[in-house]
Write a protein that binds this DNA or RNA. Sequence first.
DNA 1: TTAAATGCAAATTTTTTGCGTGATG
DNA 2: CATCACGCAAAAAATTTGCATTTAA
Lengths: 167, 167
Amino acid sequence: MIIDKGIITISEHERQERFQALMARIRGAGHRMTAQREAVVRALVNSERHPSAEELFTSVRAEHSGLSLATVYKTLDVLKALGEVLELEFRDGAMPGNRYDGVRPHAHPHLVCVSCGTIEDLETDPLAGQAQAMAESRGYRVERYRFDLYGLCPTCQARARACGHTR
Amino acid sequence: MIIDKGIITISEHERQERFQALMARIRGAGHRMTAQREAVVRALVNSERHPSAEELFTSVRAEHSGLSLATVYKTLDVLKALGEVLELEFRDGAMPGNRYDGVRPHAHPHLVCVSCGTIEDLETDPLAGQAQAMAESRGYRVERYRFDLYGLCPTCQARARACGHTR
DNA sequence: TTAAATGCAAATTTTTTGCGTGATG
DNA sequence: CATCACGCAAAAAATTTGCATTTAA
């Protein structure tokens, strides 16, 4: 796991480990393993994009031509039930549909480019600050959080500049 | 504006001021004022619940029986375009549909009860911490953020206990 | 008076579900 | 061989859109 300026990247090797762990987890929970499930899990783990269900469907279907979108959702449901995938809800703006993180299923902050849809993982714990203390002082029991920063990635800023846009 | 243990509450007087400001803003932007628009804006500003479109529709329809849900969405679109409402996306869990904050349209953290759907405003700036610095050191330009804590409010914890649930 | 806003209903979009068939353990 | 999972297509749920009618300015 490489952390550069607070942004987390994962190695090929770690992806393979994660894939094996997920396979074991699914079987261990009493679920059967199928070609479709394996392919969806592999695509989820190998993607650098925090893919949407549609993206998973498209990329997996390239090999397994008989895959259905429903199966993608059902596989994601299994992983959600096991707590092994983090679901990021997106509806409006440049990001239609939810996105999924199967590599780091625990809550963590994201850096979202509103132009190209890239999502990067941030290495920070926002609960370490005042937020959780405030919640607890009011009697809340905090179970999870969502912290996403929206903006423009360097690439999209450069493109905007090249096209004559200001700012 | 009352801040108690980091949670923000707003007075009746401030709601009225906000209502007047929104009316002026809508007219100032060249939009016409209609009975429906006025009623939706008033309901939005007076709600303590960060209401959904459906909730606004139901509460306003009580008086203005001829209101349509489409008009609620169109009014929210006007406010969104003016940057005068904060839209919180919710799809799954105990929270179907988006919720809207017309009182504080700038990004701020929320405390969300996953059991009863209550949303409270937190008085903290998560960008003051490491997050923004990390984003900027990687060349991102951060435009907005979303920071929501999910958990159980004191009331729902008490109810869970009373019903024999553990934890 | 005229351009904008409304209500209605149909269309979109994303996700879920029911069911008959096929494959896993 | 008994389930569980699959694909398909229909259903749901939330939001958007088209259009004829009404209304604010």
